[in-house]
Design a protein around this nucleic acid. Structure first.
Lengths: 94, 94
DNA sequence: TTGACATGCAAGCATCTGCTTGCCTATCGT
DNA sequence: ACGATAGGCAAGCAGATGCTTGCATGTCAA
């Protein structure tokens, strides 16, 4: 499993996660459209595709193939590793 | 406040956070020593210093100056933004 | 089968990033 | 004051990264 930290380091990839959080099981073309429309991005389909590969390698996106469509689904469980590694302590004023 | 995601994207910076989680309020030189000894890293003091700058800009490290010493303290609260942005749902088997 | 649609592969390029090197500033002990 | 210690600044470089362009593969409908 690839680097979850690197995966969420890029703002475009975070926008993809946002989009999938809002509407799950989108295809590559659907994601392209919504990212450009709703998130104001200006990238090509290939760029999104490469980002999705990285997100999938990190386990944050799960794909399901149906004919010529490939649906992308969000999986946030890899993010657990972050919170478990450095437990979030609510800062008390000294 | 700078990019928390970029800050934790680098393995050396994550090692620094690990070290501070294990022992808080270390100086730059202390951190250098322990990172080389315990974490097997081989970087110069300046590299660590630059990483600390980034971590501090991200709010993950808080510094406190005392004479010629500068103590570094871990603050995990910025990590909350990650978990809140994409709530962690435990994946049910389909 | 043929054209249209959805996706995949890969090379090339500009930029970002992490690291090193070399020098400078500031503080403490004696 | 002077040397030693802790830290800061900045230029330069090699490798990583995100993006584009161009073409290839695979699937469906008529």
């Amino acid at each position: 499993m690839a680097d979850v930290f690197k995966a969420i380091a890029d703002p475009t990839r975070r926008a993809i996660l946002d989009e999938l959080a809002a509407r799950d099981n989108q295809t590559l073309f659907e994601l392209c459209g919504r990212l450009i429309m709703k998130h104001g991005l200006s990238v090509t389909r290939q760029a999104i595709s490469q980002h999705l590969d990285i997100l999938e390698a990190a386990g944050l996106v799960v794909t399901r193939r149906e004919g010529r469509y490939k649906f992308h689904q969000l999986d946030t469980t890899p993010l657990l590793a972050i919170v478990e590694r450095w437990p979030i302590t609510h800062q008390e004023p000294t």
